[in-house]
Every structure is written in structure tokens, then in C-alpha cells.
Design a protein around this nucleic acid. Sequence first.
DNA 1: ACAAAAGTGTTGTTACTACACCCATGG
DNA 2: CCATGGGTGTAGTAACAACACTTTTGT
Lengths: 224, 224
Amino acid sequence: MSKHHASPQNIKVAVDTAILRIKDGVMHVLLIQMKKAPFQGMWAMPGGLLEDDEKCLLAASRILTTQTGLTDVFLEQLATFDDIDRDPAGRVMSVAYVALLPDQEIKLHTTDKYSDVRWFPVKKLPSLAYDHKQIIKEAMERVAGKIQYTNIVWSLLPREFTLTELQQVYEIILGKTLDKRNFRKRIEDLQLIKPTGKTRSGMAHRPAALYQFKHRKLEYVQVM
Amino acid sequence: MSKHHASPQNIKVAVDTAILRIKDGVMHVLLIQMKKAPFQGMWAMPGGLLEDDEKCLLAASRILTTQTGLTDVFLEQLATFDDIDRDPAGRVMSVAYVALLPDQEIKLHTTDKYSDVRWFPVKKLPSLAYDHKQIIKEAMERVAGKIQYTNIVWSLLPREFTLTELQQVYEIILGKTLDKRNFRKRIEDLQLIKPTGKTRSGMAHRPAALYQFKHRKLEYVQVM
DNA sequence: ACAAAAGTGTTGTTACTACACCCATGG
DNA sequence: CCATGGGTGTAGTAACAACACTTTTGT
């Protein structure tokens, strides 16, 4: 309803982005190390206060591009976190976003705002500022849920990939192994991907056929 | 990350609640009619600006209680809506919530803030203020999705209910008819409900056995 | 006795699971 | 020729879909 009272609000709005990617067989999240008190030396998700004329999604996108240089990736709102004392500096609520990146070389852009930027396995997080531990947990739950009834897995894979790579993404996110033949049957039935005709050779085994997604945008399909 | 800049923000935060309930066989949403310009005479979801020391969930709960007098109902965050010009009076973002109520007599509390309060079928909405049409649409999608993989259906039913009433809730939300025998088999397998021993008589047909949910809180189960 | 909703089983079909061997390549 | 991961089919089982009649009550 957004009705206006006489008394002005004293609430600030920040946007934080959980930037997720699979690396070395486990899910990683991009964290920055903070320079200033009260969280000096601690790690946090990249984020910042929202500008007056900026949509949250745009702010999340800006944060993502600043840190990674990437633009065309999966990005969606997760939830808004507003515990009264989540920020010791005052009432700051965070509209959190989730970004999913393919497993590729990413040049991390360190800015002078932070003392460091790094990928951390989500299961081995350092001590985090604010309520970011909770936000990352919910981001993971969102991904694990959504990979089962949508095609978002495309966002975690490069344009061309092998069936084994596709299967590994599912195995990592769901935390269980899958039967190769049953998995391939399932994927074929869904008709989400098509062979590119190319193969990936150079390894000491039979070359794997490369596939690509027919559509690289969110669709709803019962995968598992 | 919630870092603080020198320039103060000029963004307000409101909380709006989509209060949903099944009535006369279709989903209804509670709307209030606005008194003031620029949306005078138009309808909107109840809501209001967030207080400085108030959590969003608490604000949503307060809104719900103010309008309906109810307290112990399903209430969860939906999403945050922040189109720059969603409110012509300035930058006001809305943290939207969804409330689900059982189909029972509800005394609506009209306050002098609004000129009217009413239930509207979600498929026959009047002209709505702000982006509330979109918010209600997303609320409905959330409910339709969540009823399939959780037990939230309890929130739309009274404490005691018949199997037919339970089935009707699914049929209304999913928008399709279900086979009675298959439905009952499914529900029995899930073990979410138990018979109360009582029956509902007084109608010109065989009395129906009454059931109740074992747990009236959110659980994850594949229902359909 | 009639109308109206409650309650109840079986069968065919489809989807899922479990499982093992040959293939193509690089070293 | 050996090591490595790529690629493929079948059979048994479990889940799901389709379907119709009898029961109990109120009028």
C-alpha cells in the first residue's frame, strides 16, 4: 500500500549478491574481505547501499559486474533480510540476490573498497559479517530446489558441455551420485539440450560429445 | 554488504500483505479501497510503511491482525518489489508477504484509513493501485507451487475438515479436477492427516468423516 | 423412494531403478 | 597395451491413471 506518514523513516536498503559457481567439484561463493570496522578482516558477500534511482536488480547486476566483469549470467532475487540488528551500524535491510556462473576462468576485480576477494567453498566458509551465513544457506537451498523443477542448470555450465559435466552439476548440488544411464535417458526425454556435433578430445580417453542448451533462459520442467 | 555512504538514501520501505482465502469455490484476496489521491477510489492490498524498529514479518502480521483480527495463520515473505515508479509519490519499495486463511467467518475491520474492505476473487480483480496486480499474481504462483511440494494446504482449511474439502482446495488452486479415489490413496500414503472420529452430518447425504492435520506447520513433502 | 455426496479396489500402463560391458583415445 | 572416462540396453518393480458401483443420510 505504501502510504506515507509524517515521520520520516530511518531505514537503509542494501543489495547483496550471492555469487555462486562450481569449482573443483564443489560449490563456491565469492566473498570479499572487509576493510572497515566493525567487521574489519571478516568476509562478506559483495554488496552496497542502493542508489535512489536504481532498481535492486540493477544494483545486483552492477555488483556482479564490478567483481567479475561478467554480465550475461543468471541473476534473481532471493529474499529480503531485515533483522533489526543485522547491521551494528543501524537499521539496514538487505535485498539479497543469487547469481550463478559457469565454471570458467574468471578474473576477479579487487577494488580498494576491499582488502581481498576470493572464492570459498560454501561448506567451508570463513567467519562472515552480518547475517551472510544465513543468506548463503538460503541461496543454496534455492538453487538445490530450483535445479529440480527448472532448467537453471544451464547457468552453471559453459555454452558447450559434455553429458558427464552436466551430470556432475546435479550430483554436486543435490549431494548424491546419479546413475549415468538413467540420467542420460532422463535428459534426452526432456529435450532441453542438443548435440553440437563437436567433441572434446585431448584427454586420455574417448572424446566426449559436446552439447548445448536449446534455450538459455529460465523454463519450468520437472527434471528430477 | 550494507556499507555506508556519505549521501543519505531517500528510499522508503513499505510492507504489503496478500491475504488469501478460498470462498465460494474460488480464491479470494482481501483488498482495501483507498481514500487519498492519487489512487483515490482504487483498491489495493493492505499495507503501510515499515516502522524503524519493526521487522517486516511483524509489520505484515500487524496488518493482517488489523484487518481480520486473526493471528495464528500462515504468513511468509513473497518478494520485494521495487520498480522506481511503482509509487507516484516517490521511491517506495514494497516487501510483500502472503497470508493464507481457512475458509471461515471473518469479521473484517474497516478502519478510517480506508473507505472499504472486501474480498475479491483473484480472477476478477478491480483496478488496483501500485503494482499490486503483479504482486497478487506472484502470490498465487507461489501458493500453486508450494501446495505441491509442502503441506501448506493446512493453512487454507479449518482445524477439522472432510476429505472432499481437502480435495477441493487442491482442485481450486491447481485449476483442475482430481480423481477422488487416487487423491485419497495419495493423501493416505502421505500420512499428514488423521481422522478425528467425528463426522459432519446434517446434510442430505451420508455424513463425511472429519480429519485434522497431524502438524500445522510447514513441512516439505511431495504431494502431487 | 429419491437425491446427493461419501466411500471403496482392481487392472493396465508408464515411469523408475538397478545393473555391466565395449569403445575410443592418449600416453 | 594399458588406463581412463565415454557410451549404450534390458528386465524387474513400483508408481500412477483410469474407471463404477454401493452406502448412508435428509427430505
